[in-house]
């Protein structure tokens, strides 16, 4: 019965597009997420998604192609958000909240002034049907790019994430790597918004890493586990949302939450066994 349901689901071509786009975006987001979460830049992902929403809404209202405007705007935003969080004096987290809520407000205003309310929903909460072939190709290309860059720079990204001062002092341009991660995140967020929506996209960045960290304790295993987790939770969430007729984005986030809770329990149980073994 389950198999039948899956076959039925993916007999729709829009579902195949959603599957491919979402799967690639999820994996990409989870890889970048490991660095963002561990560098305590989680808020940047969140801020970027709100800026992305604002940019998409305004560009649609003005009749521009959404991605053409949103991608550069979000990249510029990434640059500023990064500077803000590195500058301890200006209260980085508050400044990021300021920027993201303002962008949200601009976006909502732009959508309501242009009179297309259905679009507001699809931007905020994602819309599987709106995933176009272009979105799909772009997300596959982006994911391939991120995976290749990340693999080639893996050791450098680890060092920058683990200890920026040390890495900078011993001769690596850490600013460039921060910028690279922020830019790739900007791309991922804009593309992923079509599937998951502006409000939920940052969960794709944050959840898999946090979940993996409950159980795995080396950097490499956390990265690999986060990738696998993000793919599985996306798949489960997508199929469940189709069968239960629930909103896709929210269902995927719930799948992530459940995975987190399961890993949390496993982690705790393991910790107890560990302590007992040590005590004995």
């Amino acid at each position: 019965m389950f198999i039948d349901a899956i076959i039925e689901i993916f007999s729709h071509s829009f579902m195949v597009r959603a599957l491919i786009t979402g799967l690639f975006i999820s994996i990409t987001a989870s890889i970048l997420g490991v660095s963002l979460v561990l560098k305590r830049y989680s808020m940047i992902g969140d801020g970027l998604s709100h800026v992305g929403f604002g940019a998409l809404a305004i560009s649609t209202a003005l009749g521009f192609a959404p991605l053409v405007v949103a991608v550069p705007v979000v990249i510029i935003a990434a640059f500023f958000l990064l500077r803000l969080s590195n500058n301890a004096k200006t209260k980085g987290d508050a400044a990021i909240a300021l920027i993201s809520t303002s962008s949200l407000a601009f976006g909502v205003l732009a959508v309501s002034l242009s009179g297309a309310n259905s679009d507001l929903n699809s931007y905020l909460f994602g819309s599987i049907i709106s995933v176009s072939k272009l979105d799909m190709y772009l997300s596959v290309a982006l994911s391939a790019l991120v995976v290749v860059i990340y693999s080639l720079l893996y050791n450098r990204i680890f060092a920058v994430t683990f200890d920026e001062d040390f890495t900078s002092a011993t001769g690596t341009n850490t600013g460039a790597y921060n910028m690279l991660i922020a830019n790739l995140t900007a791309f991922t967020v804009v593309l992923g918004m079509r599937v998951l929506g502006a409000l939920l996209i940052s969960s794709l960045i944050i959840f898999p890493c946090l979940t993996a960290m409950r159980v795995f304790k080396t950097y490499k295993s956390v990265v690999i586990c986060a990738c696998v987790l993000s793919a599985v939770t996306f798949l489960v969430g997508l199929v469940a949302s189709f069968m239960l007729k629930t909103p896709t984005g929210a269902t995927i986030v719930l799948a992530n939450l459940i995975a987190y809770l399961v890993f949390f329990v496993i982690g705790k149980a393991r910790g107890k066994i560990h302590i007992k073994a040590k005590g004995a």
């Binding site: 693999s151 893996y154 050791n155 060092a159 011993t170 690596t172 304790k217 956390v222």
Partner: peptide, 23 residues
């Protein structure tokens, strides 16, 4: 709370000897 093994941390010190290499 950073997930990393001792070996990963120590090896990362060799970063500045890598020049153009990826691994």
């Amino acid at each position: 709370d950073f997930p990393s093994s001792v070996y990963e941390v120590v090896l990362s010190g060799r970063l500045n000897s890598m020049r153009g290499r990826a691994f």
